[in-house]
Amino acid sequence: MPDRERIMKSIEVKNLVKTYGAAETAVHALKGVDLDVFEGELQLLVGASGSGKTTLVSIMGGILSATSGSCRIRGAETIGLGQKQLQKIRLDNIGFIFQGFNLFPALTARENVEVALDLKGFRGAEMRRRAGALLERVGLGAKLDAYPADLSGGQKQRVAIARALAGEPRIILADEPTAALDSFSGKLIMDLLQELAREKNRAVVVVTHDNRIFDYADRIVRIDDGRISERIMPEKGMAHHHGMMHTTFEPAAAV
């Protein structure tokens, strides 16, 4: 994959170690992980519960500190930085999508997106225009004034994606984005994330247990017991790869 070296690495992780606790009670969540995430790539992090995927994505997102090693976000080292510096890196570079959506129930779809835009420094009419445009982009132009309680799971996740896209971050980190969704909604969400990677040149990392979405991946990384145990490229025929049985939804871009 020589072309990959010319593509900018959005995230570069080297020998990352994370240990919770100390001495006899220490839990070694990550035991020397090396990982690159490139622009324009949709990468899946898979593994059993407790394998270290969430710890890894939390460190890559600049919201958890590592015990040792290196984690560069678009070239900038994040290990050892203070909370304020990490906060700025998150604000400037990363959009988050969560399994539980984490939308403000008191705010409409538009207002939920506006909160993220407000954090990025947008105000007034410009903020409203951008929020509307982002929701249009995820197919919710008709639901601008709907509250989360009035939206389906898939629609809520699309609002969360629109919110994650506020300020056009170069990296999207998604934690189990389809876990709480039916097949149809899950497909819509993965289509959107794939489009972000391929057409908008974003680096998209998806933590998942959902084998229905494996066909969307440009790369699948399996983590077992705090170590990367397997790296699979789709052209290697991952659909039939051992231990990674996939079932449904075909990616739109692959059709």
Partner: peptide
């Protein structure tokens, strides 16, 4: 979530 997104 706000804090993760970068809110101080």
């Amino acid at each position: 979530t706000l804090k993760a997104m970068g809110a101080s």
